[in-house]
Amino acid sequence: MNIFRLAGDLSHLAAIIILLIKIWKTRSCAGISGRSQVLFAIVFITRYLDLFTNFISAYNTAMKVFFLGSSIGTVYLMYLKFKATYDHNHDTFRIEFLLLPTALLSLVLNHEFSVMEILWTFSIYLESVAILPQLFMVSKTGEAESITSHYLFALGSYRGLYILNWIYRYYFEGFYDIIAIVAGCVQTILYCDFFYLYITKVLKGKKLQLPA
């Protein structure tokens, strides 16, 4: 554990909490892509199966349980409890275009051809693109509420901070995982356009609106 890894985890945690607070306080999931949230739930379920087979630390277990519970809870809030507020007309990204290629890629490019390892690899590949339905929705409507943009900023920062963690681990521990690094870079790059808008608009007190 190093400072970048911890900051990344906390940023990820903050993103999820911001999203849950937004939905709970406003009793609405307007502007949030249910499709991205379903993909994140799939990411956590396929990645954290090792909760049942291995123990790493109390921290690790607690975070995994929280990520699993909160992602499934978010899907429940969007598709059941606050279904009426879900903006499905704007949430039209075809997720099979993300699920199928990442599933195929995980079967071809993995560390070891075993069930656990392939599911882990699939979750890493899927996570890297899981935000696309959400970004597509923002670009379709041309705007995002401030709270939604804070959520996206925290979620994007998390993988960026992990990149610093991987650089640290490469230099000081001689450890690197090429699958996680490449996917993590792709994931962070997808947020770049959003980061630019967030810094130039939202931080100056303006609403996130895309140029017409």
Binding site: D9, N54, I56, K64, N165, D177, A180
Partner: peptide
């Protein structure tokens, strides 16, 4: 190395 040692990150 086991699965969990390789994948100790979240």
């Amino acid at each position: 190395k086991s699965f969990s040692q390789e994948h100790d990150e979240l």
